[in-house]
Design a protein around this nucleic acid. Sequence first.
DNA 1: TCTGGGGTCCTAGGACCC
DNA 2: TCTGGGGTCCTAGGACCC
Length: 419
Amino acid sequence: MFALIDCNNFYAACERLFEPRLEGVPVGVLSNNDGCVIARSEEFKALDIPMGIPTHKIDPTLRRRVVLKSSNYTLYGDLSARVQQVLAHQVPTLEPYSIDECFLDLRGLQEDWHALGARLVRSVAREVGLPVSIGIAPTRTLAKLANRQAKAQSTRPQVCVWQSANAPELAAHLARLSPREVWGVGERLNARLAGMGVLTAAALRETPDSELRRRFSVVLARTASELNGHPCLSMSDLETPRRSILCSRSFGRPLSDHAALAGALRHHCQRAGEKLRRDAMQASAIGVYLRTNPHHTGTFRHACEWTALPFPSADTQQLNRAAQRLLARLWQPAAYQKLGVMLAELTPRQQSQTTLFDGAEPARREALMEAWDAIRARYGRQALTLGPQPGDASWQMNSAYRSACYTTRWDELPRARAR
DNA sequence: TCTGGGGTCCTAGGACCC
DNA sequence: TCTGGGGTCCTAGGACCC
């Protein structure tokens, strides 16, 4: 059996945890740059404001009735880690899936599943203060569906158990469910399935494996098999290391100046380097992309270029040098909306292989990066930056309604008290 | 005026090898 | 006149997830 634990309306719940006045109020959380709505409280959903709607397209009347928050990933990330910590103490195998979800592999356990689920829900509520729901079923795909079913329950704790793929209540549920609701079926596949007359999740799992492989791919065949109770998905996240890193941001306003773009690129290279070093990896290839706003009329420009690094590196300065050369090649006058740096061909970090004449240089550079990370961790990211970071940071994103980092920053606690 | 930021996997087709 | 059978690697594009 597998379980899926999901924090209910996670981002909105995190905001509420430290701002009780938001209890019962429609809360929406915005994407980076305050661009669109990416998370909603139950009250917000009840107003029929859809997921993903651009902030400026929210009906002004409704806009006055809701509270919007900029996203605060520092806060959400920290609370997510605390939830996982609580769970990890109680089950043998935890597979983090996203910031607000994790799977539990319960194979080999003999338990009263309802009791286990209720215990986990209560302990997260008590120790972190966040509401979670839990679905338990023979496969991960079914556990996802069971979780959705648990959320629909009005009784607490929100736990739903499907003991077997043949359970009558499960069969009845699948017969009412659109394939689109199944994990792994998106808009496109759903439309193609509908074209074949496959209109329910039950019909999907009854479609012969060979036909799914022939007309779609092995991926959809596996999904159908999971619906039938045969586990086919492994949590590759746990076993395989990350294969690429992308750091990008939309700008607060369009940018064409080469110097300002170079500043943004330095910033992204710093973040990318830190991600690499945190995972003890090094990159062999680096790419930069630059694009104008795709939502605007007029010519859309998207430029991207890759280059191989002379040797695998996790050194921020080396990454930045290569990235800046790419930017110089890509840049043409235009009103850019977004810039990003990508790292690929990642390998575990080991003794650096460098040029013959470097001597002690690699070891010194490694020590420099260690000191770099330590200083930024201790004194903040502004304490040490690669080249000038303009004070007004014209390229930085909008974040007009951000809450305090209550759990990770001492200097933001007074803000919390003053409220 | 204002539309996010990350990731993964699979397939088809081309180029190349013996 | 006859034109095999088996591979690998790479890339672009499509699809999905949160």
